[in-house]
């Protein structure tokens, strides 16, 4: 048969071509244990290109490469919040000793609201380092009659009010639900698809309040398009030094209110310890670099302070808290 010879000749040719390339990486694989990395590092972004997580990851990958860790390839694997990519990471398998993932609030919130996850958001992963924290800001439209958190809460206890978010299960949404639960106010959630759609609703006054991420609203606060009532982190932000924290309000059960959009690297449990150490060392240098500093100041972010262990404990707390918030808001599954 003619086709048979075609097949075999094709196979041989493909084998040769592929083997040539494979041999380059195969030789180095022998030293796997001490020598790390022995291959390109893959940084998985569990969201599509263009969002904050993606932009941050690409910057971090770029900076890590400058630390001499070899190629760091960013791979977008969006789907089901961030749980698709995370679930895949949890399964491990081929290449998992060179795969790291940029985790964000979706990691904890996803675990709280997605039905039947097949992984444990805390125990199934090794936590490398918390990289940055972006505060959320409680903002109201410029012509809103409320100038303080107190005035807003008092009004929202009497009247129906709305808050916008970038979607169900976003840190913006969950911050709003948490606020609603703690302050016992009549807030209705109005979901949009992405921050880009949510912001106009707030600017035009269609919704009354939002707990949006700092980078999205900072320039509108400065240009008086929006009024900032409070930041959601325990400490004031250096970018908005005049804006109080929610904890400072000291009433309405807000004294423990602390949310932020945190970002950090996690990996599969089988990731070699040598790799974790090297990544930590490289990240430390990255986070002290001026380039990193000017980049995160653009995001209105603060550098992450938690080491791997602290980060893990923090996420365990986050998961528990969002589970409770989600079930009180009626969105848990």
């Amino acid at each position: 048969m003619k086709t048979k010879t075609i097949f075999s000749s094709i196979y041989i040719a493909v084998f040769r071509g592929v083997l040539l390339v494979a041999s380059m990486s195969a030789t180095s694989q022998l030293y796997a244990a001490e020598e790390w990395p022995t291959d390109d590092i893959r940084l998985v972004v569990p969201y599509s290109a263009g969002g904050t997580t993606d932009v941050l990851s690409r910057k971090v990958a770029d900076l890590l490469q400058q630390q001499g860790l070899g190629n760091v390839i960013v791979e977008n694997r969006p789907g089901a919040g961030s749980t698709m990519a995370t679930g895949r990471l949890a399964r491990g398998g081929r290449g998992s000793d060179h795969t790291i993932l940029m985790a964000s609030p979706g990691h904890a919130i996803g675990a709280a609201i997605y039905p039947g996850l097949r992984y444990d958001p805390v125990e199934d992963f090794t936590f490398i380092q918390n990289i940055i924290d972006i505060p959320n800001v409680m903002v109201v439209p410029a012509d809103s009659p409320y100038d303080s958190v107190e005035a807003f809460v008092e009004a929202a206890r009497k009247n129906e009010m709305t808050f916008s978010s970038s979607g169900v299960g976003s840190s913006i949404h969950m911050s709003g639900e948490l606020f609603k639960n703690l302050t016992k106010t009549n807030l209705t959630h109005v979901p949009y698809r992405g921050s880009g759609e949510a912001l106009p609703a707030l600017l035009s006054g269609d919704v009354d309040v939002s707990f949006d991420n700092m980078p999205a609203v900072l320039s509108h606060i400065k240009s008086d398009g929006l009024k900032a009532l409070a930041v959601t982190t325990p400490e004031r932000s250096k970018y908005l030094p005049d804006v109080p924290t929610l904890q400072e309000v000291g009433k309405y059960n807000l004294d423990e209110f602390a949310t932020s959009a945190w970002f950090g690297l996690i990996t599969h449990n089988s990731f070699p310890q040598a790799g974790v150490d090297k990544l930590n060392a490289a990240l430390e240098k990255v986070m002290q670099s001026e380039e990193f500093d000017s980049f995160i100041s653009q995001l209105g972010a603060a550098p992450g302070k938690q080491s791997g262990e602290e980060f893990k404990a923090f996420i365990a707390d986050e998961v528990a808290r969002w589970k409770q918030t989600a079930s009180e808001a009626g969105i848990s599954n």
Partner: peptide, 11 residues
């Protein structure tokens, strides 16, 4: 393009 397609012999 840096689009990772799966390959048999390369991870």
């Amino acid at each position: 393009l840096d689009v990772p397609l799966p390959l048999l012999f390369l991870s």
